[in-house]
Write a protein that binds this DNA or RNA. Structure first.
Lengths: 341, 341
DNA sequence: GTCTATAAAGAGATAGAC
DNA sequence: GTCTATCTCTTTATAGAC
């Protein structure tokens, strides 16, 4: 039966080519410019062929969303191994914002375009990349158990989660909750360690925290004038507000002394935890380059001129190893204008 | 020369009809469904006529944005008269979120669609409704001076700003900064009163705070699954994180005792400050109904079922006095599908 | 000022030949 | 499986009659 398998492979390959082309168009010209004709032209097939692989344009878009969301989750994988839960939350927040800024069109597609696309990403990413999702969830679970007992056992925790990421994936978890559960786990550790007086539901806290991150990203992608301050500065203030003095006053302050220490240093935290342990991350089977690359992208943005009315460049295209959205040529969410009539 | 004036009036009237129709379409069917033909059909003119009043579809959209932003600013006017700066920030945050939820399509249009639209709203709202913008700025300035001297002088402050809102407008202020300056003023009061140890730039703080609010609204409008918790709950946690324990620990906690008092009561704060003084607000020339209506809209949302995958209803159409967007019939940001082919 | 008519471009999706 | 050809439908914007 090698023939049918070859045909399957070819069919799958063409499907990938379609998605690749679609992704390129979205990155280059924005989501609104994505059309079946353009995809067909890009892969040098007829438009009708696309319908043999995808039932509609929407199905392509949703596949794109699922891919993008899986990509975002992969960014979190190495971060889930950070031992200190506060540091972990901090790193997750930075990575999230960095991802949004580095992949503006992908981020728009997943979280800012259409509820059905968002739902497709959060509910359907498992099919595309279930392994990474499961790895994230398990890494976070492993980290939780370790950190409750004692702090500073980063090596042991990372070893455990390294094995977990090699374990057989459970592809049918709800990927939408995976990222949130990472945060909630960190919060539970904080609470268990007495570093967080939980006056509120941890799920709500995580969701509100996430909303803050989303607001920072969304504003940077859409609002040309408002975040006058550099992205990093705003992000620092937000992370301070949520992590620096969280809880009820004195108690939380003492507990977060390790965070307050480097209050003005913007980026060092993630790399201080992850990069010295790059060996253990590589051991775990996942490359650590995404984390450092992500924080690097976030840092570059701090050189943005503070003046208003300048559409912010999304200059995160330094590392060609990572696919990065570039600024769309046409306006993102509007219909393409008539050229000359 | 009465003839030319009548013609000008008629021209202006048609312009308004065009915008009215456009607004209705956006509210009913979403922004993507707005086309010149539909507007023309709605006002029973030919499409060509529209181009005698607006150079392009974009110009109509930008006028809509400016209107919407002015509408949002008007929501802030009565709130700027709240004496206590922390209460004022709290009320502003709630009003902002309530506006976004009550007018989803307007909010999308201003802040979530296209950077150029956002810029048009923030930079061009003065032409549409410069008076209200100036009133907001002056009301906030008046409140600042009062509250530095002592707390609890709500009557005096409101009288002063009441006069201010009747003063001749300065229509050419940058409306984009107006709302932010209200927040910054409140922060300066907090700082001057020693209730906020300013470890960070106040402008940055205000922008980050605003980003949080935007994130909460944007997520509620776009993400079908994620804010599992009711909108109000998330908003409360966020406001607590920013206002409840802001500053460095103990000092802020004592200072914010008045806020912590009613921590679990969701809506009473705005009305406790504004509604007993409804006389003074009415005296100032601005109706106070918008503030209470806004917080009421926010509260209704808390009955949302927490289950995922349900597109959240935007049921804020109780008060017919306020124009409220309803849920679009078609998908918001996508091209309308081909009906039958 | 307003209309009819139409240009110019583009979209998604399908039928049927090969 | 793939293509050609086509259908149906949409859009913005303009020309020229009245």
């Amino acid at each position: 039966m090698g023939i049918v398998e070859r045909k399957n492979r070819q069919k799958q390959a063409l499907r990938e080519r379609i998605l690749d082309a679609a992704r390129r168009i979205v990155m280059r010209e924005g989501f609104a410019a994505l059309s079946m004709r353009k995809i067909a032209d890009a892969i040098e097939y007829s438009p009708a062929t696309l319908y043999l692989h995808f039932a509609s344009r929407d199905e392509i878009v949703q596949a794109l969303c699922a891919e993008g969301y899986a990509q975002l989750l992969e960014t979190f994988v190495p971060l889930a191994q950070i031992a200190d839960p506060a540091d972990r939350l901090n790193a997750l927040g930075r990575a999230y914002v960095a991802f949004g800024v580095a992949h503006p069109e992908t981020y728009r597609l997943i979280f800012m375009e259409d509820p059905s696309y968002t739902g497709a990403a959060l509910g359907g990413a498992a099919g595309v990349s279930g392994a990474s999702v499961a790895a994230v969830a398990e890494a976070s679970a492993a980290g939780e158990q370790e950190a409750v007992t004692a702090a500073g056992t980063a090596v042991a925790a990372s070893t455990a989660s390294g094995k977990a990421s090699l374990a057989p994936p459970k592809p049918d978890d709800d990927p939408g909750d995976a990222a949130l559960h990472i945060m909630i786990s960190a919060l539970e550790e904080l609470k268990a360690a007495g570093r967080l007086t939980a006056s509120t539901d941890l799920t709500v806290w995580a969701e509100a925290f996430w909303a803050t991150l989303h607001g920072i990203v969304a504003l940077n992608l859409t609002c040309p004038v408002f975040p006058t301050a550099p992205l990093d500065t705003v992000l620092n203030v937000a992370l301070d507000a949520w992590l620096g003095t969280q809880g009820t006053g004195q108690q939380a302050r003492v507990a977060n002394a390790s965070l307050a220490r480097k209050k003005k240093s913007t980026e060092a935290r993630v790399e201080a935890r992850v990069e010295p342990g790059e060996s253990h991350v590589a051991q775990g089977g996942k490359p650590a380059t995404q984390a450092s690359q992500a924080s690097a992208a976030s840092d570059k943005k701090s050189t943005k001129p503070p003046g208003p009315s300048a559409i912010k460049p999304t200059d995160a295209d330094t590392n060609p190893a990572i696919k990065v959205d570039t600024k769309p040529v046409v306006k993102p969410t509007t219909r393409p204008k008539a050229t000359s009539a």
